[in-house]
């Protein structure tokens, strides 16, 4: 440990305050008992799909595209996820299949 316990505790609280502020702000700005502006309602409806796209890319942000293996394990695993999901439509099966293939690829094929 580099900080004293009290300093560490203060750091934890600082991280918590910043993180929690981002969670609470929308709910504080647009309280339950009042109808939010229509623009906000509209954003609430379209944002989940957009954020899901952002999260997929965000998860892959550290994958090197221009160096070997050129994101091939990720691409193959995501392709399997899509195929499984199209075929069976089971959230769990698609994720388990994709993750298993990815683990196999990076541990045994592209190791």
């Amino acid at each position: 440990m580099y900080l004293t316990p009290v300093q560490t505790l203060m750091m934890i609280l600082a991280v918590a305050a910043g993180t929690q502020l981002t969670r609470w702000l929308p709910f504080l700005l647009f309280p339950e008992h009042r109808q939010p502006p229509r623009t906000v309602t509209y954003l609430g409806r379209v944002l989940p799909a957009a954020m899901m796209g952002l999260l997929v890319v965000y998860c892959l942000r550290n994958v090197p595209l221009w160096a070997a293996p050129h994101a091939l394990p990720e691409a193959l695993a995501l392709a399997l996820v899509a195929v499984l999901h199209r075929w069976k439509g089971s959230v769990l099966l698609s994720i388990a299949g994709g993750t298993a293939l990815y683990m196999f690829l990076i541990q045994a094929v592209f190791a």
């Binding site: 600082a14 969670r23 989940p48």
Partner: peptide, 25 residues
């Protein structure tokens, strides 16, 4: 020891939560 930096960095790293909140109102 720099709690203010920690606070500001958490705000930025977690800014995406703002959009989650808007979606869950």
């Amino acid at each position: 020891f720099d709690p203010l930096q920690a606070f500001l960095l958490s705000l930025m790293v977690n800014a995406r939560h703002l959009f989650y909140g808007l979606s869950m109102l």
